[in-house]
Design a protein around this nucleic acid. Structure first.
Lengths: 224, 224
DNA sequence: GCAATAGTGTCTATTAGACAATATGGG
DNA sequence: CCCATATTGTCTAATAGACACTATTGC
């Protein structure tokens, strides 16, 4: 494509910061680009929307993510839109950044396409240069994730459907990067009423059994 | 324009919810549309971006707002992007919503263009049907404004450069729609350190003079 | 002095964090 | 019983809201 070509309309695309927990460590999905621009470079999964098939930016983000990893993510939220003539060598572009959460038990199902390698990187230090302005995007998504976790129950979307309170606390600690107090943590959960006991279900081990919990229906995420 | 024409690229535009205070009442700017689609309808100010001149969505929003009211607003923040095939009759579109604040002393400078009437409407009940999905956008912008005000010092951007603490409190009350406690209000301002006394400046009247304050430099807004 | 508003002080209910104490399994 | 972890309780510092009190001007 001729980079000097004047475009009448901007390129419209979406990019997704997909987070999950692997061994209680926060990870973000990176894709090795197969096509131009920047073939071989690592980037957040995304792509140009298709007005013929996409009902919205959210639907487009879900569709492209599913095409890349063969998994439909259960949680997706819009962050900001990044724009300008320089951020994409193909011309004036606007990309809407989303963040998505994948429960840790679904990580094994994630598979890359033949032409594109994938990697679960450490979001604090992905260890490689990212294409376009995706480093900025990742920083923004990580900050938003931590902010949401600090004031709520987002990590429920990162855990399997059944979990113990200690597991939930470990997940929050892994995301925030700091230890939390057990007592305060449980108190806030009780007040929020966002989880419920699974009566009779316990996790056993060489210690006192732990009550199993599940997320209760809270209107945090929509469907498209 | 033929509505059945298939577009290869989405329409990309911005819309702005511009708030100000008039006589201590919160108002939002509406524009009467001169052109298709929906000529004569009332809408938030906005328009299609021009990749030839706009450096970003933010710059585009500022440019179009300035063209409509002949004033460059000092505060602009991005909210969400709204998208889909149906929201604009011209075809698949994505509009990024901004909210902007105009200090009350600059309201008199706002002038509409010859072809477009303007109105400062009451955001809670604009009293007319809005074009496109602008009613949803306005609701979202109003909620965000109140949220920001409740947790900070945003209304500084709605006041003239010099103001008293009582004026600031009245502004916050007008936005939130509920009375605030004087003592708590001032305590929080002191802790936030976002305002400073203008030494020696007082507002006089038939009562004890009021200290004049100004906003101190806080990195809340960027420039484009 | 009086009216009117500015500015300050005090009390209390709520909350988050630190930390201690108790509970309950396996071995 | 001992160990390890789950679960609960207590104390305290910080904070927000309600409300009362004091201060300072014009008249």
């Amino acid at each position: 494509m001729d980079p000097n070509k004047k475009r009448l309309y901007p390129i419209v695309n979406t990019d997704v910061a997909l987070f999950t927990l692997i061994d209680l460590e926060l990870r973000v999905l990176l894709i090795r680009r197969a096509n131009k621009p920047d073939p071989g470079g690592w980037a957040l999964p995304g792509g140009i929307i298709d007005p013929e098939v996409d009902a919205s930016l959210e639907a487009a983000a879900l569709r492209m993510l599913e095409a890349k990893i063969q998994v439909r993510v259960p949680y997706l939220a819009q962050l900001s839109s990044h724009s300008g003539p320089k951020r994409d060598p193909r011309g004036w572009s606007v990309s809407t950044l989303f963040f998505a959460l994948l429960p840790s038990d679904q990580v094994p199902a994630v598979a890359g396409k033949k032409t594109e390698a994938i990697d679960w990187a450490t979001p604090d230090k992905p260890g490689r240069k990212l294409s376009f302005d995706h480093a900025d995007m990742l920083t923004e998504a990580l900050a938003r994730l931590r902010d949401d976790v600090a004031r709520g129950t987002l990590p429920l979307h990162l855990l399997p459907p059944r979990f113990t309170l200690t597991e939930l606390q470990r997940a929050c600690e892994a995301i925030l990067g700091r230890p939390l107090d057990k007592s305060s943590f449980r108190r806030q959960l009780k007040e929020a009423k966002s989880i419920a006991k699974v009566t009779g279900a316990f996790v056993r081990g060489p210690q006192r059994p732990a009550q199993v919990y599940r997320a209760v229906d809270n209107p945090t995420h929509r469907s498209w």
